[in-house]
Design a binder for these strands. Structure first.
Lengths: 210, 210
DNA sequence: CCTAGAAAGATATGA
DNA sequence: TCATATCTTTCTAGG
């Protein structure tokens, strides 16, 4: 059974029905479609190409992504139609697709389909496979990642980007040691002078830094 | 750094290099490409559309899929080029794509790209995003005054979102004090239990967190 | 998301 | 030590 959000256009629901899929309207809080079977729920977010491009530019996309990951173990974002590559560069588009998978660590799967017909095929196929119970085929090996979130943490300091964050971690080994370092210690890192060292020192201690 | 299997064609390796990506040849046992950064590894399997169709027919695809899930936490299967829909029905093709994601529960992400140029863009983007250490579904934070940067910094800790970051800062006053807090002290913050407290404590000290 | 270019800072050199 | 030239990195704006 597929639930379609009540704000989704009729034409899609009709198309699904004409394909022999059981669809029911329902008010959904986060996704546009929900495929359920026994205790599984898979969410699908539909995005027209134009809207997708906009939502990247203004950061909306990654909010939605975040909400999806909080609520569902596995969801899909379907981009429909052709992208206007004058509005967004090709590499930026591809980068955003890759980013969805990476940021969500695979729990949100990006799909790019030609048209709404194909989108419906995706839903239909999802529905059938979930019902068929094929979802349990290979158990996912959850070996928690250990990527450097520490780098990301340090880049939040004004004036510290990826390069400096890496160098800081290289020298000090952990965020704890960076945060507890003295100004002269910080200055020993290549690329960090007195000014920068003082900024870091002050920032982590909550003093206003400009 | 990207490792390319030694059997991969030169033209792709060259194309990557011409895009400014560091590539090294290596004999890989399962995937075609490997993107590594610190202890993290992402595998990429390249499949020309024709070969993809064949590999479904003879069952090879799902063997490969299985091996990928066993070895890597996150991998990609890139189908390159247009599919001959006389050899494989459109719905069957879409179904297979969906099936990859479902069976692997998202740990293998299927991507369908136009040509090898786009494939290289995928690799390039993967490489950069992994190196940047920004692999986390953190909500986008609007940077205003410096106080918000502190919140942003704390949200990089796994399991800490905007709400918890704010509460932490409210109680401790600065990133320095949060980082230097003991586990019992951290637990006194509303919404943070022992498990979370320990995670924060361990994370900032550079211990791998589960 | 990606790039380009401006701005800021760090390092090296030489007086 | 200071002034300056060069290089590296960060940040902001725009698509």
């Amino acid at each position: 059974m597929i639930f379609a959000d009540s704000r989704e256009p009729d034409r899609i629901v009709e198309m699904l029905k004409s394909m022999g899929v059981e669809v029911q309207r329902k008010r959904l809080s986060v996704a546009d479609y929900l495929i359920t079977y026994s205790s599984y729920a898979i969410a699908v977010e539909r995005k027209d190409a134009d809207d997708y491009v906009n939502s990247i530019a203004d950061g909306r996309l990654f909010d939605q992504l975040y909400r999806l990951t909080r609520l569902y173990e596995l969801s899909f974002i379907c981009v429909i139609g052709s992208v206007d590559f004058y509005r967004m560069r090709r590499d930026a588009f591809i980068g955003s697709i890759v980013s969805i998978a990476l940021k969500s660590r695979g729990s949100v799967v990006p799909l790019w389909v030609k048209d709404e017909k194909d989108f419906c095929l995706v839903l239909k196929s999802l529905n059938r496979q979930v019902e068929g119970g094929r979802i349990k085929a290979t158990p996912r090996i959850v070996k928690k990642a250990s990527i450097d979130d520490s780098v990301a943490m340090l880049t939040a300091i004004p004036g510290v980007g990826v390069e400096k964050a890496k160098k800081l971690l290289e020298r000090f080994g952990s965020v704890f040691r960076v945060v507890n370092a003295t100004i002269p210690e910080l200055m020993r890192v290549e690329g960090i002078g007195e000014k920068q060292a003082r900024r870091i020192y002050d920032f982590v201690r909550g003093r206003r830094v400009k």
